[in-house]
Nucleic acid binder design. Structure first.
Length: 423
RNA sequence: GGAGAGGUGCCUGAGUGGCCGAAAGGAGCAGUUUGCUAAACUGUCGUACGCCCAAAAGUGUACCGGGGGUUCGAAUCCCCCCCUCUCCGCCA
């Protein structure tokens, strides 16, 4: 959620910036300004009457104490009318605030000034490409064929016990998953992130805090009995740890990482996008999260991007980094880098990570603040990134590293898998 | 799931209708003293929104788990909800 003070101070800038996200904010911003105006004038009137009532109450108390009943009763006679006015103004206050809030949450985060204009993924800016595109022979198999051939992943049985998009990893397939998770967590630890094992069900407040609710309600699995959501990413619980907190600036930065399964309903997806491991309802991911002082968040974003690039490099996967255009960015993000690996047999780029700076968009929703010395508490900046999401890493690894006899495991993973080759 | 107890400021904890934004202690911060460590003493020590203002200061309102109610007046009384703890039951 954008800060109201920002909208009030620079309404035109908000509208102009949101245009980069192809979002026409003009009418909403105007409504917000009008309601904000109304809210303040209502509060001024309300506070005045409340002050009057408080003063009278105090006097009544004192009059009673000194036995002046008649005078007290006289004062009391006025309060009825005031209380009527109060209830009217309070109601007005409530509805205005509710409307203001409901409008404010409709506005996406304003993109950073460097975000390229654009509507579709085609308009994303490729900022870096690295690694050789593998030359696979005619016989190269897509990963879902390889997974079947070497008995690594069983999609059909997953359908039987749950449904499409819930694969079963078996044998070396399962061990490869575990190896990747441990590898990613160890690397994050080396980079100074503290490991968190969070709940994978979260409440509504948490969903709101990081921006999944109310915007992406339909994306999450919901447990109606307990009103809990299955997390679509570890970002939700790990960031919400700090909801409603004022952190001492000295404790920043917060650098957390965590592995969790992630659950996404992905309603409406179809075709080649959902083939094999390309898009799943449940998948494994290691996430990195940082909470930073505002002045350092963009430097941090670059660091996180480079950190993820280093992971891909160490796995010898050809990858590219995209700076997302306004139209392809998420609702909550101010600047996002996507990392894509090349999947040799499918001959396409697959997104494996998304690294974003949310500035104060999430912290404003969460009331996540920091306090520096005697300064007033201020909203912190939050950032996060996948480091990494497993399925598409596995997909490209299987495809790119295949030969006639099997699949080679990257060196860095061998200490984790305890095998070098799948055959 | 059943029974009971409880949720107060950074922490401990007092407060059962007005003198309570809230005692006291601790932590923190600033200062005084002491040769260092430490101690002692003094002061300071919430947040949000509004008004005023260049700003600071000032000032009004709200907040004692959340929501509603009674009352001129609620941390305190009543109702609903949430959460924590203890015991019992169940269970990895």
């Amino acid at each position: 959620m954008l800060e109201l003070s920002y909208i009030r101070r620079s309404p035109k800038e908000v509208v102009d910036r949101l245009a980069v996200k192809n979002f026409d904010a003009k009418s909403i911003v105007d409504e917000i300004l009008a309601m904000d105006e109304k809210r303040r004038s209502t509060q001024t009137s309300l506070d005045a009457i409340l002050a009057q009532l408080n003063k009278a109450s105090k006097e009544i108390g004192e009059l009673y104490k000194s036995g002046k009943r008649a005078e007290a009763d006289e004062l009391k006679a006025n309060t009825g009318k005031w209380k009527l006015d109060i209830s009217v103004l309070e109601e007005e206050m409530r509805t205005t605030e509710t409307e203001l809030q409901s409008k404010a949450v409709l506005l996406p985060n304003t993109p950073h000034s460097s975000v390229p204009k654009g509507k579709t993924p085609e308009d994303n800016e490729v900022v870096h490409t690295e690694g050789a595109i593998p030359e696979l022979g005619e016989n190269a198999l897509p990963h879902w064929e390889l997974a079947k051939k070497y008995d690594l992943i069983d999609f059909e049985t997953g359908v039987k016990i749950t449904g499409a998009g819930f694969p079963i990893y078996k044998g070396k397939g399962a061990r490869l998953q575990r190896a990747l998770i441990n590898f990613f967590l160890d690397k994050a630890y080396e980079a100074g992130y503290m490991e968190i094992e969070p709940p994978i069900l979260v409440n509504e407040d948490s969903g709101f805090g990081t921006g999944q609710l109310p915007d992406k309600e339909g994306q999450m699995y919901f447990v109606t009995e307990d009103k809990l959501y299955l997390i679509p990413t570890a970002e939700v619980p790990i960031t919400n740890i700090y909801r409603d907190m004022v952190l001492d600036a000295a404790t920043l930065p917060v650098k957390n990482c965590g592995y969790t399964p992630c659950f996404r309903r992905e309603a409406g997806s179809y075709g080649k996008d959902v083939r094999g491991l390309n898009r799943l309802h449940q998948f494994d991911k290691v996430e990195i999260v940082q909470i930073r002082l505002p002045e350092e968040s963009y430097k941090t974003l670059e660091e996180m991007r480079d950190y993820v690039a280093g992971l891909l490099r160490s796995l010898h996967l050809p990858f590219r980094i995209l700076k997302l255009c306004g139209g392809d960015m998420s609702f909550a993000s101010a600047l996002t880098y996507d990392m894509e690996v090349f999947s040799g047999a499918q001959k396409r780029w697959l997104e494996v990570s998304s690294v974003s700076n949310f500035e104060t968009f999430q912290s404003n929703r969460m009331k996540l603040r920091f306090k520096k010395d005697k300064d007033k508490p201020a909203l912190a900046h939050t950032l996060n990134g996948s480091a990494l999401a497993l399925p598409r890493i596995v997909a490209s690894m299987l495809e790119n590293n295949q030969d006639d006899k099997g699949i080679r495991i990257p060196d860095v993973l061998v200490p984790y898998t305890k095998f070098e080759y799948i055959s």
